[in-house]
Design a protein around this nucleic acid. Structure first.
Lengths: 214, 214
DNA sequence: CAGCAATTTTGCGTATTACGCAAGAAAGCG
DNA sequence: CGCTTTCTTGCGTAATACGCAAAATTGCTG
């Protein structure tokens, strides 16, 4: 354990830890790639390990299951979205910052089309992945809540606003993704996310009314 | 498939289906009981099957994993909470109906104390259970959202209000449960839930403000 | 740069698991 | 009572998760 204040990014990590991060990425990437390509049922831990150039045993040092490995990239991105909110310019209003941070991180996902997108859908929305998928959502929600709390200077244990807001954003993102997956003909993801966030924002107004008895 | 309008409760089901429900309950109950008593690591599918008087193979006809079986009761309760909201007196305001329905269903959980409660905590909050635990939450959220949509006469696909509201309620419930588990000395659950719901309601007012750019 | 301590990778062994398949038991219908 | 449908069970198998200890690798220190 170094006594340093733990830098944000991958900067200034011992070679050891950087390599470890790299292997994690390699395994996660291979897992996701293979799963999308061949389907969940047609890959084994052995396959993934081979594709990532590690032994099967090492695979299980990093992930405790095939499904966990597949969602590793998603988890990482979820965490990044959180810090993205923090790193938005300070004067920017909270909701704008959130919107921008979220939109930013879903731009990369616009490209997958046709066969690849269908593969993603089959993997991510498969019943077997549901547990891990929800973990990813939860990770994003936590990261968002932490970021919001920090930005708004609130105590996450006292004030429910961060968690509630994060939950709503997450809900919006999920709705957008669902729509994107089932859009026929295909449409770009970004506008769907923007639209969903807008709907959630409007829903808050109604919710505030619904919650007030008077 | 009968052509009847599918009655709500267990009433008027063929003996076959009632028995199936009973076995499901038996297995789920045994699984939960054993898990809380002995700990997740110290029970096998075989143990659970034995405790429920079925063969191990039958176990897997009902549940695809030990963890799924353990959370079966929770899932069932989640669904019941949903219908409880629907069955509240129609003139009751939405938020009151939700509060009442949720409180009602957590009354039974007040009793566990000491060793048993600690067992529950270890099982439910264990990393291994996290996926299934989130599934349970998701089930409750879906049930709530459906109920809210029905009660408010909204289309769940168009209007985000139901899902957002349901998510917030779920968040509140989870917060309450977490606090209940870690309360020392122990406190009853019900007030915690009520308090958390109140906090969420207040958070909505703030959220509505935070979301409005003007 | 050589050697040493810490960490990571790997192979092996094993208990467990999930599920296809087909035979046997039970339920419900006429 | 006999027939059909559905559920239960046993068997076999591929896959998995993880403890353990040996081997390889890393990074520091003299």
């Amino acid at each position: 354990m170094s006594t340093e204040p733990a830098p944000r990014a991958t900067a200034r990590l011992g070679l050891r830890e950087r390599k470890k991060l790299a292997t994690r990425d390699a395994i996660g990437g291979a897992a996701f790639h293979l799963a999308v390509q061949r389907g969940l049922e047609n890959i084994t831990v052995e396959d993934i390990a081979a594709a990532a150039n590690v032994s099967p045993r090492t695979f299980n040092n990093y992930f405790s299951s095939k499904l966990e490995a597949i969602s590793a990239l998603g988890i990482d991105r979820a965490v990044r979205i959180g810090s993205a909110v923090c790193e938005r310019p300070a004067p920017e209003p909270l909701w704008e910052a959130i919107t921008a941070a979220v939109l930013e991180h879903y731009d990369a996902v616009q490209s997958p089309q046709g066969e690849w997108k269908e593969g993603m859908r089959r993997v991510l929305l498969s019943p077997a992945m549901r547990g891990e998928y929800l973990k990813t959502n939860a990770a994003m929600q936590r990261a968002l809540a932490a970021a919001i709390a920090e930005r708004a200077g609130l105590d996450p244990d006292r004030d429910m606003l961060p968690v509630v807001l994060a939950g709503a954003v997450n809900t919006a993102a999920q709705a957008a993704i669902r729509r994107w997956f089932s859009a026929d003909p295909p449409v770009p993801l970004r506008p769907l996310v923007r639209e969903a966030l807008g709907q959630v924002a409007r829903a808050f107004t109604d919710a505030a009314r619904a919650v007030q008895p008077g």
